[in-house]
Design a protein around this nucleic acid. Structure first.
Lengths: 326, 326
DNA sequence: TGCCGTGGAGAAACCGGTTTCTCTACCGGC
DNA sequence: GCCGGTAGAGAAACCGGTTTCTCCACGGCA
């Protein structure tokens, strides 16, 4: 930069002003500087800028597991929007571990990221507030955080679970079991709640097995369920990974869907229409939600908004064949 | 940091030395500094460190699309290893666009990342050499780059395609078509090559349709193929996304696999065993390859190795039902 | 004509560490 | 006892920008 200043016969301050365009600079000076920049093919040192400004052009995305298609879709949408805005994105996998999340959030504040999208594995973590204290905007994705200053983009899990129950009840089912995700995770708890509420509303007894959001756990749980002599006639599965396990268990048991067992699954992975029979799913508008999360974040970053905002997104029921009705 | 120095009655230099442990410091000084650090709960400013060291603790991962399960698995493995080593990871989607890749690689050098894992969308890009010129190690994943200084972790695409042909020929098939990925992408070209070579070796005529690595393209191409009166009896599909399209087209056409059409697919996505019939696949050891890529990168970063290394990984053939044999 | 306000440029401080350079004190060897 | 070598500490330079502060010149107004 000193070289540029020398070559243009101006001070470094003027070079900086020209390049940042914040302060007004005389036309002749501007031209001289731009020429010198061009001739020396000068690129400002990002690290120095970061230090001086005490922030980076980086956005942190914290999810439990980017390998879960749900989150890869989300990260993809976030990255798209970030790129268009000139931001980089740092991905952080927590594996639902509050410990790992703590470490990562700490890293993100040290790294002076300009904003964070977080699917929390620990809603009450102190680091969330620390982030906000330091003026780093945060938007909660899928799962709320305790700090009221954060924005949130949430899916209507309770309603979705209810609509699944309604669908199956409408199809004549009485024994509808639910393969539950982790109850200590908001998404899991809400879907379970919605299921139980809807069942009780119909005077039906909830039957819950634990799938912990994992393929193998769900497979074991459903295998056990299918081995019962008097087994449920319908199954609602709490997310896409568990659906893989549930389907495997059902196949192993030689049970035909939807004839012997109706199935409705949360999430709408790419392969949902290809299995036999095509899966009736509750599709969360992940891409739209992620894009919205980024909009909220960008509004905060630019200072265009200071009041927290929270948006709730309904699922869409994709009726295919596995539910056996309509 | 000045505060810490003052409180410990030492110079900032000593504080730095204690915290970095590079230089030896007297035990009494060390203790005083550590106490002061503790009492003030001091955390060094990462940005200042970055500036002074002219590098960050960040690794860049450049892929065409993180939403492709192939790459999310890869990124996940990379992130795991990076986290354990104290590195952050910056993800970059190129959408197979040389332009976007150029922009991202430029960003990564500006950002002074400490290393890059790249699945290139432009093997001859000048930015790759610029990266290496500046001493930033790079490992090519899946696809080679032109610069010989880079490390590479490659899958044996040719051999895999050949083994698929062998399998089908062994099952009595003569008309084996191939749904090809983009030929301008190394992976696509190699798989196609392997297929053609193997076909010719058996005196069979290759039949190639274009799927461009995309679900919709593959679906259209296969639909057309299936509409022919005299259609192939077997199909090899060049990656997991195209397999989704191919399966949809096959279902649409009312064709039963493997009875009317044998199927072998590249990639082994989570749902491969769940479709009807279970898919015979060529599984690339993505996780192992990604971990190895990180090992290579870390060796370079630590300076433990200076000679370029290239490793090639075989696919594993997961024989299920869709190939109709064995 | 004189004075005040302001636009625009440069000088210098600053961001917060790391690292080189310098200096002192202590040790061992002759 | 003197000298060279070295360990360990502090002073100061440095990384490369941004931003504040200062100053000058010019324009408008009385």
């Amino acid at each position: 930069m000193a070289d540029v200043a020398r070559r243009a016969s101006v001070s470094p301050a003027t070079v900086s002003r020209v390049l940042n365009g914040r302060d007004s600079v005389g036309a002749a000076y501007r031209r001289r500087v731009l020429e010198a920049v061009e001739e020396l093919s000068y690129r400002p040192n990002r690290l120095a800028q970061n230090l001086r400004r005490q922030r980076t052009a980086t956005i942190g995305v914290v999810v439990s597991d980017i390998e879960n298609p749900h989150f890869s879709e989300m990260v993809r949408a976030v990255e798209d929007r970030a790129y268009r805005q000139g931001y980089r994105v740092l991905v952080c996998n927590t594996d639902e571990s509050p410990e790992k999340q703590r470490a990562y959030l700490q890293t993100l504040v040290e790294e002076r990221v300009v904003g964070v999208v977080l699917t929390t594995s620990d809603p009450v973590g102190r680091e969330i507030s620390e982030l906000l204290d330091r003026g780093i905007p945060l938007v909660a994705f899928d799962r709320e955080v305790a700090d009221a200053r954060a924005d949130a983009v949430i899916a209507e899990n309770v309603g979705a679970a209810r609509s699944a129950v309604e669908l199956l009840v409408g199809g004549g089912h009485q024994r509808i079991a639910f393969v539950s995700g982790r109850k200590d995770v908001e998404t899991g708890a809400e879907r379970l709640d919605g299921y139980q509420l809807a069942m009780r509303a119909h005077g039906l007894e909830p039957e819950v097995v634990e799938g912990r959001f994992r393929t193998d756990s769900a497979r074991a749980a459903v295998a056990q369920l299918m081995a019962e002599t008097d087994r449920p006639t319908a199954l609602i599965v709490g997310n896409n990974l568990m659906t893989l396990g549930a389907l495997a268990a059902v196949q192993d048991a030689g049970i035909t869907v939807p004839h012997h067992l109706a199935l409705v699954a949360f999430d709408d992975p790419s392969w949902a229409a290809l299995v036999d029979p095509p899966l009736t799913t509750l599709a969360q508008p992940v891409r739209r939600m992620a894009t919205e999360a980024m909009e909220l974040l960008l509004e905060r970053i630019s200072g265009a908004r200071t009041e927290p905002r929270r948006t709730v997104h309904p699922f869409v029921l994709r009726k295919r064949t596995s539910c056996g009705t309509g």
